[in-house]
Amino acid sequence: MSLIKLLLVPITIYLSMSAQASTQEYIFINIWDEYVQPTSLPAPSAPRVMLQPDINIDDASLEQFKAAYPSYGNIKIDKQNQLMLQFSVRQTPMRILVENGKVIQREQLSTATVASKEEKTNTPLKTLAGTPFSIETVNSQYRVLFFSDSLCPFQHIPACEMKIEMNNHLAAVSDYPVLTIIKPFYVDEQSAYAYQKRFNIKHDIVFDHHNEVFSTFDVRELPYWLVQDKQGKVVYRGNQPPSLD
């Protein structure tokens, strides 16, 4: 009798473990939405895997998110969106319960809206050092405008680190005053300060709160240079550093 019991115990444990192992819970979130609309996560109903779709994401951004939200410390990128396509996930946040490879439950999770830190009012432009900045008189203060993005390094800003380095060199050796303008999409002024520190920028930086400097000069490519003469006429524009001979 005791021998049967001895045999039954490990079999029961094995069966219970294999039943659990065959059920998996996947939570798909979009970290860019989580910053403004955090997901209300339910208690796990099976071993949980947190996934970020492989859209507009890189390792650095994911690490930054994990640092801000430690409860998502195990989140991974769903490389090539393999699981998202396999489970037909087209919305986030989404909870998918999979048993033996088959989706048995699918639930759109709820979110809470966090008030935006960005002021809705028209924030006057100024350099990060606090000097008021005017687009109308930019040519009297600066000759070289360098349009950049504090999300660097990121996929939509090719070779940005190298180009920021090139611009720093340009600012150091040139007699022409250089200004860096930071794109405001998805970031706030604090990210511009972080950019300044990260890339050791010694020249002036303006955070373009309402994208008005970018719009005025019709700049859409990043990073991008623009050179004006003293009369404010644009004499160069392009994605390579200007020759200032």
Binding site: I55, N56, Q80, L85
Partner: peptide
Amino acid sequence: DESGKITQQFQVLGTP
């Protein structure tokens, strides 16, 4: 691209 198949076909992992 409701199913995401075209996006996958062209190996697009970012927008735009």
